[in-house]
Design a protein around this nucleic acid. Sequence first.
DNA 1: AAAAACAGTTGAACAAGTTCAACTCTAGTA
DNA 2: TACTAGAGTTGAACTTGTTCAACTGTTTTT
Lengths: 192, 192
Amino acid sequence: MNDLLIQNIEKSLQLSKPELDELCSYFEPKVIRKKEFLLTQGSVCKFEGFVLEGCFRVFILDKKGKENTLYFAIKDWWLMDIDSFMNQKPSNLNIQALEDSKVLLINRKDKLTLYDAIPATEKLFRIMSQKAIVAWQRRLINNHCQTAKERYHDFVTTYPNIVSKLTDKQIASYLGITHEFLSKIKKSSKDL
Amino acid sequence: MNDLLIQNIEKSLQLSKPELDELCSYFEPKVIRKKEFLLTQGSVCKFEGFVLEGCFRVFILDKKGKENTLYFAIKDWWLMDIDSFMNQKPSNLNIQALEDSKVLLINRKDKLTLYDAIPATEKLFRIMSQKAIVAWQRRLINNHCQTAKERYHDFVTTYPNIVSKLTDKQIASYLGITHEFLSKIKKSSKDL
DNA sequence: AAAAACAGTTGAACAAGTTCAACTCTAGTA
DNA sequence: TACTAGAGTTGAACTTGTTCAACTGTTTTT
């Protein structure tokens, strides 16, 4: 059952079999039904999650109540509010399952224990964090340097297996536009 | 001379005196004159930098040749293109000194050596990377959830000591707007 | 000291994206 | 089977932000 987690870890760092076994033992599986929340704003994020099955959406509500999606997470993606998790402060984010899903969770105490128990995990999460920075940096660049239409086509071609699980409303909230405007973008793309 | 670096490190992790001394010994000071580049797009980022004095701007040119600032770095900030540095691929970014500046640089080989020589640096850079993720996440949220006017006032009040070193053109390129529009924002803010 | 280059302001026309309202279609539920 | 809620489309009016051009003032360079 942890094969997927192990594969994911080994993309960043090679660990010994006993290390992998111990590492995996800290994670607890959890099933989340469609539309249920793994985290709601105002509560502290107590876990770091790895998605085994299904699909999640991490979003924030702005002042006007509009939903703004930071990212989606499907199988093989990590999931958390790192700001809330690190600083143990109430989260601004909501994490909701878009379909029946399964995750592996590790809580904060266990994660801190893990760093001491298996020193190699420091390197592991250092590398994974650096990859995350790269991803965030690219996301900001895309947002600044491209029009909505370009961002849409980029997203659809880069993440077809995520897009196939999403409604246009959810895609629009990720792109930072209204779903009405996305509809117009799609139309103008067809008309070529 | 390394006092500032040591203070910065200790915000993330307490290290022993010998560890700090060895760590610091890997960094080389470098003086950069105003308008000179520490990194230009197309070349591989060979260093990770820590600013001792002065001010830098990290920007990307979009298809239309418009400059888009990812972030500024003054005294006590870190500086690099992590995508290029990690993956040893040509950078899309430019890093330019906005005034005569001084940095401490560590190159890639030394950084990798450092992780082996001082295991605690794994934890150190793991923590620093996680802080960077938080910062990028906040930047994206600001961009998505606020108008240009709100972003401007936020930036000015959050980073007054950076803003004081910048022209309005540079501020606009960070906010993701034209400098003409920033000028209009400033006018409409005065007129209240 | 003059010339050139750059920073900032303003206005007018324009483009990108939003808002609101009406409508269609589909999927889930009583 | 009918009802309802949600997803998607479209149009018209609107707001936010861009583009271009002209002008002013300030640095830098010669």
